[in-house]
């Protein structure tokens, strides 16, 4: 199976999934569950952006939640101090996360594996600690309030769904261009990629910046939805959720993080009544999937659907 065809199949499957989601409000207009779906879409964007970095480029960053937080503060601070309208705030959040990602990505270029994980984790913690301790500017753990953009949950649902669709389409276009080839080549063997003429510094930094910008975009959008931004957005546990969703759904596929995000978040809200063991279950699932089914749920689906071919 060529990479091209694989990617197209994943894109079609993701589009179908998004279409089904788009039809949901016809049957269900419960405010609480619409909110759950909004948060799921937020995580789906985060997980997809992290997957670009970890699944396709092999850069295992532990800072996706920090970039969402940067995006959220970008929007909230510019709204609080300069009164900018939401669309501009969104842009500011996205661009500031993207720029910081560009710089960080360039700096950590040479680091791999545990070294990269430790550096990005430290970065994430520093950003969060600064946000939570710079009380004069950010009001610390109290959080910065924001004027809500609008209040109708159905509208919010469609806003987030469009944002997710936009991000997925962007990723699809990026990955099916030559960039997709180069990123995967870098993930598999950086030295071989360099031998083949791939501009390592450029593509790795670009992947980091794009991924961070997408995370910042999700964070900024979420800030307007929640109308409050706190340092909690950047907690390592949030990154843990993003990693879990991606691993359960299927790392390195376009659809995996989306499936993972909706599945994990929606079921965990569902199971809340059963006593809150959902996080235990999902953490256990992450370990089981990483240990036994490395392609995630999507990989299981593909294996189940694949025609049994005779060995050549």
């Amino acid at each position: 199976m060529s990479g091209d065809i694989r990617l197209r199949r994943e894109f079609i499957a993701t589009s179908l999934l998004l279409l089904v989601l788009a039809l949901l409000p016809l049957a269900m207009r419960d405010v609480y569950w619409l909110g759950v779906l909004v948060v799921s879409a937020y995580f789906a964007i985060l997980a997809s952006s992290w997957n670009l970095l970890a699944g396709f480029t092999g850069q295992f960053s532990l800072a996706p939640a920090a970039f969402a937080m940067i995006g959220a503060y970008g929007a909230a601070l510019s709204a609080a101090y300069y009164n900018v309208p939401p669309l501009i705030g969104l842009l500011i959040g996205t661009v500031s996360a993207g720029l910081i990602g560009l710089v960080l990505g360039r700096i950590v270029m040479r680091l791999r594996g545990p070294y990269l994980a430790l550096t990005t984790l430290s970065f994430a913690e520093i950003v969060r600690l600064v946000a939570s301790n710079s009380i004069n500017i950010t009001r610390g753990d109290l959080g910065l309030p924001l004027e809500p953009w609008f209040n109708d949950r159905v509208i919010w649902f469609y806003v987030f769904l469009s944002a997710l669709t936009f991000v997925i389409c962007g990723l699809y276009l990026l990955l099916r261009s030559q960039a997709g080839l180069f990123l995967e080549a870098i993930r598999d063997d950086e030295i071989a990629a360099a031998r083949s003429g791939v501009r390592i510094v450029f593509w790795k930094t670009a992947a980091f910046a794009i991924s961070s910008a997408a995370a910042g975009f999700a964070g900024a959008l979420y800030a307007y939805f929640a109308s409050l931004v706190t340092p909690e957005l950047g907690l390592v546990q949030q990154t843990g959720l993003v990693v879990s969703m991606t691993v359960i759904g299927g790392m390195g596929s376009l659809i995996g993080p989306v499936v993972g995000a909706f599945l994990v978040y929606v079921t965990s809200e569902w199971l809340r009544d059963v006593g809150g063991w959902q996080l235990v279950i999902f953490a256990a699932l992450v370990i089981v999937f990483a240990r036994l089914f490395r392609a995630g749920l999507w990989g299981l689906v593909i294996t189940a659907l694949a025609p049994r071919r005779k060995l050549a």
Partner: peptide, 27 residues
Amino acid sequence: LMRMFQLTRIFPRMNVLDNLLVSGRAL
């Protein structure tokens, strides 16, 4: 200037065709 390494270096998780396309497109 193209180099073939003594210890084989390819892209193990990409298919054979894509392995070649990386070089072609990057060049």
